[in-house]
Design a protein around this nucleic acid. Structure first.
Lengths: 150, 150
DNA sequence: GCAAAAAGTTAGCTTCGGCTAATAATCATC
DNA sequence: GATGATTATTAGCCGAAGCTAACTTTTTGC
């Protein structure tokens, strides 16, 4: 092996390792916003159904306890996604509404895609919930196209 | 609306809410094992490549710092997935090897599926990394079948 | 309009998974 | 085989997201 070849293969490997690391870093980033996205999406649904989003309903729908909801709502308010008054229901800010809309859009595309693959609705809903946060724009476009033509 | 209809729709709604909550609970459960799975899968690769898995290599490949790796390895050892000796490389237990094999299998199916959908390799690898932890057995089977016939 | 039930909050605990700074051990090179 | 570089560990910090227990506020039903 010449020095040049050696250098090339080393560099190629380094690039591969770095790109892999970036993939993991990307996944970790996505993970950080998952909970916020799930909450905002659910809050939007509740507001649509009931005109308001009560913590107790968020808790039962998310399968967590009321204090957990309270703490998470605190973070959402801090991040400018919801408005909050003590002992009252929560509502979405403009930013929150935008995020909710985007999430709902992704969710629907992923769900429709899984259904059009032939998955049962129950499992499709479950898997969509987990997958939707980890699908790039490109993949989402392919999913949408697939559902369309099938 | 009769009382019966009222009751039925209430019960149906309750079931839907509960099933939704279960989906979220499932996603949270999956989330808890994600990191362990990523590490074990990577450790298996490193052992395959180099005969051992050094913390420093795990760190660069995962895109985290050495102390983060050390702490996570502590958890993996506690959970019986790896063996560890101070200042030495880590190795997989029988259980760890089994998990790694399973993860690699899932990863490959998801990756091949995304590629056969027409996604570019870079994005496919990135998305597979995030998606693989949230795909049920059923969906995995559908993914595999799709790649096969295309 | 009051009492009980329901809902919301606060305090305080846990685990996980990141980080930096400091220390310790191993490895490589002369 | 000493020494400098690399690697590994430890200590200690942080924030997120879960929980229970205790308390306050609001809602409801008589």
């Amino acid at each position: 092996m010449t020095d040049d070849e050696n250098l090339d293969s080393t560099e190629a490997e380094a690039r591969a390792v770095e790109s892999r690391a970036e993939a993991f870093i990307g996944v970790r980033e996505a993970r950080r916003s998952e909970v916020a996205e799930d909450y905002v999406e659910l809050i939007a649904e509740l507001i649509h159904e009931n005109g308001e989003a009560r913590p107790v309903d968020i808790a039962t729908r998310m399968g967590v306890t009321a204090p957990t909801v309270a703490k998470t709502l605190g973070r959402l308010a801090r991040d400018g996604l919801i408005t909050r008054a003590k002992y009252r229901s929560v509502f979405l800010t403009e930013e929150g509404r935008a995020l909710a809309k985007e999430c709902r859009h992704r969710h629907e595309i992923v769900l429709r895609f899984l259904l059009s693959l032939g998955l049962d609705p129950e499992t499709a809903e479950r898997d969509a919930e987990g997958i939707e946060h980890h699908v790039s724009e490109r993949t989402l476009a392919l999913f949408a196209a697939f559902s369309q033509r099938s």
